[in-house]
Design a binder for these strands. Structure first.
Lengths: 327, 327
DNA sequence: TTCAGAAATGTTATCGATCACATCGGCTTT
DNA sequence: AAAGCCGATGTGATCGATAACATTTCTGAA
């Protein structure tokens, strides 16, 4: 930095001002400094900046160690958005979203003096751990508890589930069975709620809730049971992998999709269009969620208090053969 | 830190020594300092340390922005391994692995003064960009060019492809068709090589190579073509998603799997066991790769020159119904 | 013309750690 | 008993940026 200052014939402070886009720098000086920076290939030392400002150009993400489509996509999209805004992203995965693991990861991030934190908090246990986070650190939750009052971005799970259930009822089914994800996930809870509400509003009978983890394996096991029940003609599953397992179970038992049973998934993984048959599902705009989360975070950093602090992204029903409009 | 020093009745330097496990500290002093640290809840400022040492406790990862199963899993596993070793991981995704994008990401990481770099370099274009990386920065490639001479960890793609092809030949097929991934990927190249070698060694005819991207969509398109060719009885695809698309195309054309056509995939995604029919595939131990990469990196940081610098992880054939041992 | 006030720039202190070197006992060696 | 050395600890400089304040230069109104 001193070298740059010398070459441009100014003080190091002026260089710092140019770097930080301070208003009070003459245009001509600014240009001279920029030229010197370019000529010397100078790049500011972020550690030094972090030391004095107490804040780095780093955003910490707390996420469950997971290769599930949703969380993985979210992370990737967020990283991209952050990079475009000039921030690096430090990932801290935890095996479980319990309080002590989260606390450990948050501590690691605080050590790094992250400028903000994004918590992908798909279960209630994650919300409890927010006590660990200092008040003055910008935080955004993705997928957390809307009731927490903290800044939060989610996909509207209830609306997605309603659209899926509605679609099946409209197609002529008397009722719709639901295979949910783990019940401690907010996503699952929202989807269950949307499903139940829609059935109740339509005056349809609400079948018993079947819950599973998110895997194709459990979808298959649940599917084996459902396949033996002739009264089951419409199934809404909480994600596409569950649907895959169910499709296979139905296939093995000779129940044709969609002729005998219609199936709707959730997520729209890239492969969903190539399931047998192609899967009707609910697409979540993870990219939009990631960008919204980033903008909330940047808003907090700027202390932009007029900003909305909860953003809900609408999902979209994608109709394919596994559940056509009319049976 | 000054507070800790005062409370423990020593100088700040001694506190620093305790923190860094210097040998020349009396046991008794060490205990006193540790107690003071615990009492005050003191945590060292990493930015300050990074400033003076010129190196942070941060490992940079350069990866293509991707939700492909392989890269996503690799990233997640690596993050976990690094966290266990006390390192944070900063992810830098690029949309394309071309030289200028990589260079930009590497620059961002250098700004952060990362202690080491992991490049998930699945295409040749990534290897070219290594010129951007300073000589003295520890670097490990995952999936790069084995001929580069740089420290590198890969799954043995050739062996995996050989096992898959061999399996199909042993089951009685005259030859095996291959749908590869993009040919500029090292993974693809290795799989093609293993496939071709095995056929040649067995004296089998080598059918024309079909190449695709990694998606189920292209698998489907390729599958529609293959399904019309009665001489095709065995297909080895470069990943499981391609296989999924092919399974669907075969299904639509009424060609039964494995009765008419056997299919083998690659990756063993968690859903592979629930495809229709369950997919025979080659499992890659991503966790092992990630841990190996980390240990190579830590070795370089310690300047442990006696260390092996290329590690090849063997894959494993998982036999399921889509390609049983005997047809 | 003068002078207040703003704009542009410079000077020095500071963040919190490590590094290099200085100091001080105690122990071995002759 | 003196010299020499080593282990334990302390002192002050340093990394590279920004913050706070000081100073100079410019602008426009009285």
């Amino acid at each position: 930095m001193t070298d740059v200052a010398r070459l441009a014939g100014v003080s190091h402070q002026t260089v710092s001002r140019v770097l930080n886009d301070h208003p009070n720098v003459k245009e001509q000086t600014r240009i001279r400094v920029r030229a010197a920076i370019a000529e010397l290939g100078y790049r500011p030392n972020r550690a030094a900046r972090a030391l004095v400002t107490g804040r780095s150009q780093l955003i910490g993400v707390v996420a469950r160690n997971s290769t599930l489509f949703g969380p993985a996509t979210m992370l990737s999209e967020f990283e991209q958005a952050a990079a475009d805004a000039g921030f690096a992203v430090s990932v801290g995965s935890v095996r479980e979203l319990d309080r002590s693991s989260i606390s450990a990861v948050v501590d690691r991030h605080l050590d790094q003096r992250v400028a903000g934190l994004v918590v992908i908090a798909n279960t209630a246990s994650a919300t409890e751990a927010l006590a660990e986070i200092p008040e003055d650190l910008p935080v955004v939750f993705i997928d957390g508890d809307p009731a927490s009052g903290r800044p939060l971005v989610t996909v509207d799970q209830v609306a997605g589930a309603r659209a899926a259930t509605r679609h099946l009822l409209d197609a002529g089914h008397e009722t719709v069975w639901h295979v949910s994800g783990p019940t401690d996930w907010f996503d699952s809870a929202g989807r269950i709620q949307g499903w139940r509400q829609t059935l109740e509003e339509a005056g349809a009978e609400v079948p018993p809730l079947l819950s599973a983890d998110w895997s194709a394996a459990e979808g298959y096991r649940t599917g084996q049971m459902l396949a033996r029940m002739p009264e089951v003609t419409a199934i809404f599953t909480a994600n596409d992998h569950l649907a895959l397992g169910i499709l296979r179970a139905l296939h093995e038992r000779g129940r044709r999709v969609p002729h005998d049973v219609s199936v709707v998934g959730f997520d729209d993984v890239p492969e969903a269009a190539y399931f047998i048959p192609p899967l009707t599902t609910v697409r979540q705009a993870f990219g939009d969620v990631a960008r919204a989360a980033l903008s909330l975070l940047l808003g907090q950093m700027r202390d932009d208090s007029g900003m909305a602090d909860q953003i809900v992204v609408p999902p979209q029903l994608i109709v394919r053969e596994s559940a056509p409009r009319r049976i």
